[in-house]
Design a binder for these strands. Structure first.
Length: 711
RNA sequence: GGGCGCUUAGCUCAGUUGGCUAGAGCAACUCGUUUACACCGAGUAGGUCAGAGGUUCAAGUCCUCUAGCGCCCACCA
C-alpha cells in the first residue's frame, strides 16, 4: 500500500498533477480513445463563457454538470467530445471595458474604433487565458485542441456567410424601424437586452384644441400634429378622420389632423392621444398605417432637438418640468395624475431609460424561422429537462418579433455590408464580403448582436458546413445551460441549426438554475455574498465543490450553496480515501476470477443493483439523485456496514471466507471508484493510480462497469 | 395584464410513472472509540408534507380553490 494513505487526502497536492496526467494522455480528444472509430459519438458543446472576468459559481456548476455527463459517457464507451469555447460577448464585454476606461478617466468616444477594438481584444485574450486555467482547476475534461473563440477568423467568416445567405434567402432586411436606443452606450439593443421596470410617474392631461390628451412624456410632444382616437368611440363621433383643426400648442399655433385608429384604447386616459412616431413603437405603427410623416425630437444623446425651440439642447428629464411650467402658464394643463403606474424600459447594463428611436438597422425575419423551431419541438426532436421549460420555449416562439441584429459598437463581428449615400433618402446597400466597384462605397461600421454568432455556435464549433467534425459530431447530444437562456439563446441555436444544418443542433436541453448563497439570496458584489469557486476549491478540493454543486440540485431550480455543505463533501473525500486504505491494508490480493461465497455474492449483487440504479438516474438526467445515492451507499452501506462486518471475517482463520471477502471488497472499491469518477474525478483517479490498475491504466478512460468482474 | 414556479424537520433541500411506517446533509442532544477514518462510530430528538375541498382501496405525489413567496414576459400613450 502507498504510504500516502496514512495521511488524510490532500487535494491541493493532488489535483494539478492529476489534471496534467489526463491532459498528457490526450484522451480529452475522443479521437485518441481506444477504437475511436467504432465508438458512437457523444457531443456536448460548452456554452462559451464571456471572456471578460473570473469564473463564478454559476460557471463552476455548468462545468461540473457537463463534465459529469461527458466523463460518464466516455466511460460508457462513447466517443465523448466536449468542445470548449469562449465568447467575446460583444456588448457585455464592451460595457465591462468601458467601466474600466471610465475608472482610468478615459472614454471610448474619444478613441479611434481600431484603437478601442485592439485594447478590448488584448483584454479579452488575457481573461480567456485566465478562464481556461480556472476551468482546468474545476476538472473540465474538454478537448482543448478544439477550443474556439467567437472572434476566430474562420468563425467570423462563417457568421458573415450566414448573414449573406440569409439576405439572399430574403430572411434579412434593412429596415427603418423603432429600436431600443441606449443614450449612454450609444447603441441599439434587442428586446432581451432591456429590462422593464415598474415605476410610478405623473400622467399629464393637456388641452389640445377641443381635446384633452394624456401623456407620460410631455417632452416628446413638440412636433405632434396628429390627434388619434378609436373609430368606434362615440364620444368623438363628430370628428372625422382627416379633419384639420387649428389649435394653440407648446410653441404656438399649429394645425392638427384627426386620425382614427384601432390601436387606441378608449378606456385609457381620455381615449385620445397625439402621436410621436419617432419615439414610440405604437405611434410608429399608427403613422405607418396612415402614411404620416415622422420627425426626430430627441437626439442620439437624449437631448431635445431644434424643434423644441427654447428647450433645444436640454436633457429630456430636466426639460420636462420646464415644459410643464410653460404649458401651465399657457393654461394648457388640465390635470396631473401623480400616481400613474407603468413599465419603463431601461438598458439592462446601465439602467438608463431606453429611448425608442427610428433607425436603419438589419433585421432578421423571425416568423417562418420560429415556426420551424416550433415544429421541431412539437415533433419531439428536442426535449427539455425539466420539461416545463418547453412551455416557455413555445410561448417565446409563438410571440416572436423581428430581430434587430445591428449594434453600434466596435467590439464584435463586422456586418458585411456596404453603403452609398448612407443616412440619406438615396441610401443604397450591398451585402457582400468585399467592397463593391466604385469609390463611393463605405463599409457598415455596425457589428452583429452577440446572439447572432453564439446562436450558430454548435454549427460553428463543429466546422459547418464541410468540417470533419461536422459530419461526425453534429447534431450534438446535450445542450446544458442556464435556465435564463431558454429564450435568449436556445431558440436561436435551434433556428440556426435547422436553417443551416437542416437538423436540430441537439436532442436534449438540460437547464440549471442559479447558484445562490447559503440562504438562497442571489450573489452580488454589493451584497458581499459572492462565493468564488476557485477559493472554495483551494480550501476543500474540487471534488468536494463538485459534489456540493450537484447533490440536491434539481434541474431548472436554484441552488443555495453553503460552504458547510462543501465541507461535508470534503469529509466524504477523506472517507473514500480511508475506505481505500482499509481495503488495501487489510485484504489480500486475490485473483479477479475467484468465486465469491454465497454471502459475499449477495452483497456483490447489491452492489450491482446499486450500479444499475445510479446508471438509471444518469440516463434520466437525475444527476442530483445519482450523486446522492453514491454518497449514501459508499459511506453508510459500504463503509459503515460492509467494512465493519468485514473486520472479523478478515481476521478469521478461515482462509476461504477471508479470500472471498477480500475479493468482494476489492471489487466493490473498484466499482465504487468507477461510479464516483464523473462526480469526483480527482480523488478517484488518484486512488486508481496508486492502485496501479493493470488493464485500465487510467480511470478517466476506464469502463463505467467492470464487466469482467460482474460475470 | 399574462405566464411559470415554490411553500416538506431549527437551516438548506431530496422525494422519478400515486403505495411513505415521509428522507438526506448541516445544526442539536446522549454515548462510544482513538488498531481505515475525530475530516470517526452507535444512537436520540425533531414534521397535522402552507390551508381548505375533491378524485382514489391508497395523495407529499393528481384536480379545484385560498393564502404567502419568488422569477419571467408585456408597444395601453
Amino acid at each position: 500500500m502507498d504510504d500516502a494513505f496514512l495521511k488524510p487526502y490532500n487535494p491541493a497536492e493532488t489535483e494539478q498533477r492529476i489534471y496534467e496526467l489526463w491532459e498528457q494522455s490526450g484522451m480529452f480528444n475522443p479521437d485518441n480513445l481506444p477504437d475511436a472509430e467504432t465508438r458512437k459519438p457523444y457531443t456536448i458543446v460548452m456554452p462559451p463563457p464571456n471572456a471578460n472576468g473570473d469564473l463564478h459559481a454559476g460557471h463552476a456548476l455548468f462545468i461540473t454538470l457537463e463534465d459529469i455527463l461527458i466523463r460518464y459517457k466516455r466511460m460508457q464507451g462513447y466517443r465523448a467530445l466536449w468542445i470548449p469555447g469562449a465568447d467575446h460577448a460583444g456588448f457585455e464585454t464592451q460595457v465591462v471595458y468601458e467601466k474600466k476606461l471610465e475608472k482610468e478617466g478615459r472614454s471610448r468616444f474619444k478613441m479611434q474604433p481600431k484603437e478601442l477594438y485592439d485594447e478590448i481584444y488584448a483584454f479579452t485574450l488575457e481573461n480567456k487565458k485566465n478562464m481556461e486555467e480556472q476551468m482546468r482547476k474545476l476538472g473540465a475534461s474538454c478537448d482543448w485542441s478544439r477550443e474556439k473563440f467567437t472572434l476566430d477568423g474562420d468563425i467570423v467568416q462563417r457568421v458573415q456567410d450566414t448573414f449573406i445567405k440569409m439576405y439572399e434567402d430574403n430572411l434579412v432586411y434593412r429596415g427603418k424601424r423603432t429600436v431600443n436606443w441606449c443614450p449612454k452606450h450609444q447603441t441599439s439593443l434587442s428586446d432581451v437586452e432591456t429590462v422593464g421596470m415598474e415605476e410610478t410617474a405623473p400622467l399629464y392631461y393637456f388641452k389640445y384644441g377641443p381635446f384633452t390628451i394624456a401623456t407620460a412624456r410631455p417632452e416628446t410632444k413638440f412636433g405632434d400634429k396628429y390627434v388619434v382616437m378609436h373609430p368606434d368611440d362615440v364620444r368623438y363621433k363628430k370628428w372625422k378622420h382627416g379633419q384639420q383643426i387649428n389649435l394653440e400648442w407648446i410653441n404656438g399655433p399649429i394645425t392638427a389632423t384627426v386620425i382614427k385608429d384601432e390601436a387606441i384604447d378608449p378606456e385609457f386616459g381620455t381615449g385620445v392621444m397625439t402621436i410621436t412616431p419617432w419615439h414610440d413603437v405604437t405611434d410608429f405603427e399608427i403613422a405607418k398605417r396612415h402614411n404620416l410623416p415622422f420627425e426626430q425630437i430627441i437626439d442620439w444623446r437624449g437631448k431635445l432637438m431644434p424643434v423644441a425651440k427654447e428647450f433645444e439642447g436640454m436633457k429630456i428629464l430636466s426639460a420636462r418640468p420646464e415644459i410643464i411650467k410653460k404649458l401651465t402658464e399657457k393654461g394648457l394643463v388640465v390635470k396631473i395624475d401623480e400616481q400613474y403606474q407603468h413599465v419603463a424600459k431601461r438598458c439592462y447594463k446601465c439602467n438608463t431609460f431606453i429611448e425608442p428611436q427610428v433607425k436603419d438597422q438589419w433585421f432578421v425575419k423571425m416568423a417562418s424561422l420560429a415556426q420551424m423551431a416550433l415544429e421541431a419541438v412539437n415533433e419531439k426532436q428536442v426535449r427539455f429537462i425539466p420539461d416545463n421549460y418547453e412551455k416557455i420555449f413555445r410561448y417565446w416562439m409563438e410571440n416572436t418579433l423581428d430581430w434587430n441584429i445591428s449594434r453600434q459598437i466596435v467590439w464584435g463581428i463586422p456586418i458585411p455590408a456596404w453603403f452609398k449615400n448612407r443616412g440619406t433618402d438615396k441610401e443604397e446597400s450591398v451585402v457582400s464580403h468585399t467592397r463593391p466597384e466604385g469609390d463611393e462605397w463605405e463599409s457598415d461600421t455596425d457589428t452583429f448582436d452577440t446572439w447572432f454568432s453564439s446562436g450558430q455556435w454548435p454549427l460553428l464549433v463543429t466546422g459547418y458546413p464541410d468540417g470533419k467534425d461536422y459530419t461526425t459530431y453534429y447534431p450534438t447530444d446535450v445542450m446544458e445551460t442556464g435556465n435564463d437562456l431558454i429564450f435568449k439563446w436556445i431558440p436561436r441555436m435551434i433556428i440556426f441549426g435547422l436553417y443551416l444544418g437542416k437538423k436540430v443542433p441537439f436532442h436534449t436541453v438540460y437547464l440549471h438554475g442559479l447558484v445562490n448563497d447559503a440562504h438562497g439570496k442571489k450573489m452580488s458584489k454589493s451584497k458581499g455574498n459572492v462565493i468564488s469557486p476557485i477559493t472554495i476549491t483551494e480550501k476543500y478540493g474540487t471534488d468536494a465543490l463538485r459534489m456540493a454543486l450537484v447533490v440536491g440540485n434539481t434541474p431548472g431550480t436554484n441552488l443555495s450553496l453553503n460552504p458547510d455543505k462543501v465541507k461535508g463533501y470534503k469529509h466524504f473525500s477523506n472517507k473514500l480515501w480511508n475506505i481505500t486504505r482499509f481495503i488495501l491494508e487489510r485484504t489480500q490480493e486475490v485473483d479477479d476470477d475467484i468465486i465469491l461465497n454465497e454471502k459475499d455474492a449477495s452483497i456483490w449483487e447489491e452492489m450491482r443493483a446499486h450500479t444499475t440504479e445510479v446508471t438509471k438516474h444518469m440516463e434520466n438526467f437525475s444527476i442530483h439523485l445519482a450523486a446522492e445515492k453514491l454518497y449514501h451507499f459508499t459511506w453508510h452501506r459500504l463503509a459503515d456496514e460492509i467494512i465493519e462486518e468485514s473486520k472479523p471475517i478478515l481476521e478469521e482463520n478461515n482462509a476461504d471466507t477471508a479470500r472471498s471477502r477480500s475479493a468482494l471488497l476489492r471489487r466493490m472499491l473498484d466499482q465504487t471508484l468507477r461510479l464516483l469518477h464523473p462526480f469526483m474525478p480527482f480523488i478517484t483517479e488518484e486512488i486508481w493510480q496508486k492502485m496501479k490498475h493493470k488493464k485500465e491504466p487510467m480511470l478517466m478512460s476506464a469502463q463505467w462497469i467492470n464487466t469482467m468482474e460482474t460475470e
